[in-house]
Amino acid sequence: MKLADIRKEYTIKSLDLNDVSSDPFQQFRVWLNEAMDSDVPEVNAMCLSTMGLNGFPNGRIVLLKEMDHGFVFFTNYESEKGQEIQALPKGSLTFFWPELERQVRIMGSLEKVSELESDTYFHSRPIGSQIGAWTSPQSQKIETREALSKRLEDVEKRFEHEAISRPPHWGGYRLLPIRIEFWQGRPNRLHDRISYEVNSENKWIISRLAP
């Protein structure tokens, strides 16, 4: 089959201005809960896009771990994404839940979460993941897989008789949104799009967008 011939009609649900919450965070929780109830795999997976140091947009999948007044994820601060965020602390998140024919796009600024928040989440992770945070020089070039295995052995030996502390180069970021768009697939590519944008008074303005 040719790629151009792949086509799907979206017919499951609709989205109307009269149906959505005035609070985009509440609307996101409703959709997230429905996605979890529908057993969407990797329901908290999201594409984080930042501006690369080479001037090109750069995206990768990360996992949403908390939602309060922003959207929180954790990573290595010295990784490629960490360096990009340090240079330009702005980004976007994209969720795609094909089982519900839904997409959510979120745009905003990025900030580090507090040390306490990073510590709390780090110590909630499985031991193997804690060890992994110390082991991997994320995004750096390595010679072989065996070299990574040797680093793992060294880290395991280091923490054999002591509690695993959070690496200083590892922690969380929070994306603080200025725009959130909810997309619901509809027949004939006439999809429903509802956008929330923050105005100068820090209030959310809701609009319907053409598909």
Rank of each mutant, 00 (worst) to 15 (best):
P187R: 11
I178D: 13
N202D: 14
S129Q: 10
R208I: 12
K157V: 09
S200Y: 14
A163S: 14
R186N: 09
A133P: 01
W204H: 03
S149L: 15
Y173D: 00
P168M: 08
Y173V: 00
Q140D: 09
A147W: 12
D154F: 11
R174K: 15
P187K: 14
E160I: 07
D192G: 07
R189S: 12
K157D: 07
R193L: 10
S149T: 10
P167L: 03
N202Q: 13
S165L: 07
L209R: 11
I131M: 05
R208Y: 09
I205H: 07
S195G: 13
L175W: 02
S165D: 12
V198N: 01
F159S: 00
K203E: 14
E156L: 08
A210M: 15
L176C: 11
E197N: 07
I164A: 03
N199H: 08
Q130R: 07
V198F: 07
R193T: 09
S149Q: 13
W134M: 02
A133R: 00
K150H: 07
F182N: 02
W134N: 02
V155S: 01
K141W: 08
D192K: 05
L209M: 13
I194M: 05
R189I: 12
H169Q: 13
G128S: 07
P168C: 08
A147E: 15
S129I: 10
I142H: 11
I205W: 06
V198C: 05
Q138C: 03
L152E: 05
E181I: 05
A210L: 15
G185L: 04
R166M: 06
H161L: 09
R145H: 14
G171C: 07
I205A: 08
N188K: 15
T144M: 08
Q184T: 07
S195W: 13
F159V: 03
W170A: 01
S207H: 15
H191L: 06
N202A: 14
V198P: 04
W134T: 01
S149Y: 08
E143R: 13
R151F: 05
L152F: 15
I142Y: 14
F159T: 02
Q130M: 10
E197G: 03
Y173F: 11
I178T: 13
W183G: 02
H191G: 04
R208D: 10
R179K: 11
I180C: 04
W170D: 01
Q140A: 11
R151G: 01
R145C: 10
L176T: 08
R189E: 10
Q140F: 03
S129P: 00
E146R: 15
W170S: 02
G171I: 03
Q130W: 00
L152C: 04
T135C: 06
R193Q: 12
E181H: 04
I180N: 00
K203D: 15
T135N: 04
A147Y: 15
P167M: 05
G171H: 01
Q138D: 03
G185W: 00
E153K: 06
V198M: 07
S136E: 05
I131Q: 00
K150Q: 09
